[in-house]
Amino acid sequence: MGKAMLEIKNLHVSAEGQEILRGVDLVVNAGEVHAIMGPNGSGKSTLSYVLAGRPGYDITQGSIFYRGEDLTPLPPEARAAKGIFLGFQYPVEIPGVATMTFLKHALNAQRKWRGEEELDAMGVMKLVQREAGKLKISADMLKRPVNTGFSGGEKKRCEILQMAVLQPLLAVLDETDSGLDVDALRLVGDGVSALRTPDRAMIVITHYQRLLDHIVPDFVHVLSQGKITRSGGRELALELDREGYAGEQPPERIPARA
């Protein structure tokens, strides 16, 4: 397995009988930021869900290894405890559970799973408030139920807050830029950039290059029709931004059924 943090080989994934990923290969090392770009429906979100362990996706071929361990049999909570974080494109509203309470449960569940001592309410509060301040998240927002009634920007900032509190090793950020205005984009982009460390890797999934002005990637991949069709450096994102995804069709088109 070498030093790779994440190694995806020939990954085929189906959902509801439809093949969505058709042979994805990807290696991500600690300290790297990979951007995955691609048109709508290319399988970007599916890849993120499969990494986080969402039920309902069948891996029909291939493998996913995370820090040398087969990830596929692990439930979502075990993956989270081992350091995988999914920033949701559409963070889910959970009425009745205060954001601070939710963070306390999440943090302590992960700590307990890893055999670490749980933090008391005061310890969690201090940690959360410190990170919330950086993201301009008010104490009032932390008292409100998770994502309930939050604006699009508030939801995305709250995702980054969760990432900052949970300190994952591999963060998969699914369209974190969608629904953000310029100021919110900068706030979120800077928040994510601040979490870049040599022992942490990130996969940033995005449709547009603009987020990558704030989170500068080491590698850019194009996912199209369930496969990575091109890989390159930062310049590939700029090229796609100029020229669009029109040319990104896989070599073998799937013949239309009669």
Binding site: P76, A80, I94
Partner: peptide, 27 residues
């Protein structure tokens, strides 16, 4: 969707269910 969201943050399935049910009744 809510159940997966909680589990993706490390909260075990039984606890996630209990949290969601508790929230449903809390109102």
């Amino acid at each position: 969707g809510a159940l997966f969201y909680l589990r993706a943050r490390g909260i075990g399935e039984a606890q996630a269910r209990a949290l969601l049910i508790g929230a449903f009744l809390e109102e």
